[in-house]
C-alpha cells in the first residue's frame, strides 16, 4: 500500500494536497465507527480497519464546533490573529487579552504565545507550541468536564445558541429538540431521547410558553454541548 501511495504521490506531481485528498476520500478513512458483530468476531482488535475507532475532536475543533453550532462562527478567511481572553494582561511580555469568543473567529486564528497559551485549547491537549508534536496525546480528565460545565465561553455560546433557537419557528418543543440534534450531532433523536430531553426542558421552564423560555433552552443547549457525542467522532 505504501508503495502504491508513493507511486501515486509522485505521479500526482508530488502534491501533498492531492495525497491528503486521496487518503481522506478513501473508503477506509470514511468508515463509520459502528462495529458490526460479524467483523468484531473475526477481527476484534480492528487490525484490518473494518471501522473507524471512536475518537475525540481536537481542541480547536471542539471550540470551532461550539462556535458553529451556536451560530457565532465567523467563516471569514485570513486576517489578523486574535488574542485569547486573559485574566491578567502583561504588556512587558506582550500578553494582551481578547474577546471571550474571539469574535467568533476559528481557533486557527487565535494567537499562540509560548508564554501563556489558551487555557481552553490546552485543556483539550493542544500541544506545547515549542515542541514538535507528531501525535497529540488525548487525555480524558475531570478538568475537561469542569471546562465544559463551567467555562464562561461554553456558557456564553450556549446562551447564544438559545437566542437563535427562540427565533426559529418550531411549532413544538419536540420539533425544536429534533432541530438541535440535527445541528449539534447531525442526526435525529430516538424516541426515548426525545422524551428525555423534552422532560428536562419542560421541567426547567418556569412560564407557560416553554418555546419562549430562553433560560430553559440555554440549559438544554449547555447540556447538549456536554454530551460525549458532541466532542467525539463515531
Amino acid at each position: 500500500m505504501l508503495d502504491y501511495l508513493t507511486r501515486e504521490f509522485v505521479a500526482d506531481g508530488w502534491s501533498t494536497k492531492r495525497l491528503i485528498r486521496r487518503l481522506v476520500l478513501s473508503r477506509t478513512f470514511r468508515q463509520s465507527g459502528e462495529v458490526s458483530v460479524e467483523a468484531a468476531a473475526v477481527d476484534p482488535f480492528n487490525r484490518w480497519l473494518h471501522h473507524y475507532p471512536t475518537r475525540r475532536l481536537e481542541a480547536e475543533a471542539i471550540r470551532d464546533s461550539l462556535l458553529a453550532v451556536s451560530g457565532r462562527l465567523d467563516r471569514k478567511l485570513y486576517g489578523r490573529p486574535i488574542n485569547p481572553q486573559r485574566q491578567v494582561e502583561d504588556p512587558g511580555k506582550r500578553l494582551f487579552s481578547g474577546p471571550l469568543d474571539g469574535n467568533g473567529r476559528r481557533s486557527i486564528y487565535l494567537e499562540v504565545s509560548i508564554m501563556d497559551r489558551s487555557k481552553f485549547l490546552q485543556s483539550f491537549n493542544a500541544p506545547d507550541p515549542k515542541l514538535p508534536t507528531g501525535r497529540r496525546d488525548e487525555t480524558n480528565v475531570p478538568a475537561q468536564a469542569l471546562v465544559m460545565l463551567n467555562d464562561p465561553l461554553v456558557l456564553a455560546l450556549a446562551d447564544q445558541w438559545s437566542s437563535r433557537l427562540l427565533a426559529d419557528d418550531s411549532p413544538s418543543v419536540e420539533q425544536r429538540i429534533r432541530s438541535m440534534f440535527m445541528q449539534a450531532l447531525g442526526r435525529l433523536p430516538e424516541a426515548e431521547e426525545l422524551a428525555r430531553w423534552a422532560t428536562l426542558i419542560k421541567s426547567l421552564s418556569t412560564g407557560d410558553n416553554v418555546l419562549a423560555d430562553r433560560d430553559a433552552w440555554k440549559h438544554a443547549a449547555h447540556t447538549l454541548f456536554n454530551l460525549q457525542e458532541f466532542t467525539h467522532y463515531r
Binding site: E34, T54, R56, L149, L227, H232, R234
Partner: peptide
Amino acid sequence: LLSDQNAAFAGKSSDAAAIEAAITNYETA
C-alpha cells in the same frame, strides 16, 4: 441526563472504555 445519554453513546461507540471514563470524570468534576 448526560449520564443516560453518554451511557447509550458508550454502548454504540467502538471505545466504550473512554466514554465510560468520561462519565466518571463528570462525577469527579
